[in-house]
Nucleic acid binder design. Structure first.
Lengths: 207, 207
DNA sequence: ATTTGGATAGACAGCATGTCTAATTCATCA
DNA sequence: TGATGAATTAGACATGCTGTCTATCCAAAT
């Protein structure tokens, strides 16, 4: 009846290995020429040298795999560290600049993959929910910073708090970065423009 | 050998009718709850009370139908008229404001449908191309206006022409409007904020 | 009355997701 | 060492999608 105790140990790290292999394969395939056509669970599994069933065992569904892939991209793009660093700054305006930088660096770290993943999210309820909640966290960060800025200076730029937050949220959106960067502008230059506009929104002097 | 002359007449208008019915059905289905799941050619055809083959006869492919649907939305959203009207204004700053208004009104005219259509476009090469070329036309409009503004005032805001154009392009993007509007801000209010920011980009005084 | 072209139903190939099962492999445990 | 348990696997399967083809019907144009 009762199963005997069982420590996973080596088995766990083997499973983690396959998880990583699958995520890496999905990542590579998402970046390949015609990802829309061939981005199937079967193609991912073949690329990871794994059975299709293994993908379902590990991630439950294609949606689950895409969520894991997004997590991986955020980590690889250095988002969590940089956000933490930005929040630790004393002057709120510096925190704001740091947050904008952190997200721009993340968006720039894998633009094509993030673009396609976000597109998939619009058509996939589960993934859409995932990305939506992440966006809401970003908005929360921005709101707390705007509040810190507004406390002494009041409504310096003649905007309500909600207006400022939503403008900053829009400016730090992936789509905004992606559009502004276009096909030629460098990540650094794009980031500079967005940081500048973000600071203008809260009424901070340019440069 | 040579076919006899044949005026379509009534047949043409019948065919146009079915075309419109199919587009309307696709539109309705795109707006329905779980459009991602059931947005199939079959479902569209059934809703239009038409055979699936008719859709392929009329539009060639699902992509062709989506392109036609986007054309329909642009027309219904009053985009062409308003853009023409804006370009006819004498002061270039007024033209810029008019262009921003025209696109915001278009985006607002059917937000959900446009949002989903754009998502589909990322995954559909043909539709993606269509929407891309439309965006390029918008960018061309903005460039010509910025040039008209810059002529007397030179680089008033300390920006290059390309920077100004790309910032305006980003501000007048659908995603920007969609994000800024969020779930509560009215179309008018959102448009006002974006118009204001667009004028700030070219160094025009607020209000 | 005959020609013509759009609309139709149905079959089909090909590919996708997701489920199920039986067999296999191999680290863990007694 | 030998039994146990979990991950992995190949393959079949149901379901639904796009896109193509065909034979047929119908109504408008001649």
């Amino acid at each position: 009846m009762s199963p005997r105790p069982y420590q996973l140990g080596q088995r766990q790290s083997n499973a983690d290995d396959t998880r990583q292999r699958v995520i890496a394969a999905a990542h590579a395939l998402l970046l390949s020429e015609d990802s829309a056509r061939r981005f199937s669970v079967d193609a991912i599994a073949r690329r990871a040298d794994v059975a299709r069933m293994t993908v379902y065992n590990q991630f439950g569904s294609k949606t689950g795999l895409l969520e894991a892939l997004f997590d991986y991209l955020a980590e690889a793009g250095g988002l969590p560290e940089r956000v933490g660093e930005a929040l630790s700054r004393t002057k709120p305006v510096d925190s704001l600049a740091g947050i904008v930088d952190a997200f721009c660096l993340f968006w720039a770290s894998d633009r094509l993959a993030i673009r396609r993943l976000r597109a998939l999210a619009v058509l996939d309820a589960g993934l859409g929910e995932s990305l939506y909640s992440r966006n809401e966290r970003r908005k929360g960060l921005l709101r707390s910073i705007v509040q810190r800025i507004a406390a002494p200076a009041s409504a310096a730029a003649g905007r309500t708090l909600d207006e400022s937050v939503d403008l900053l949220f829009t400016l730090s959106n992936f789509e905004t970065f992606d559009t502004l960067a276009g096909s030629t502008r460098s990540a650094e230059e794009t980031t500079r423009l967005l940081r500048e506009m973000a600071l203008a929104v809260v009424g901070a002097a340019r440069e």
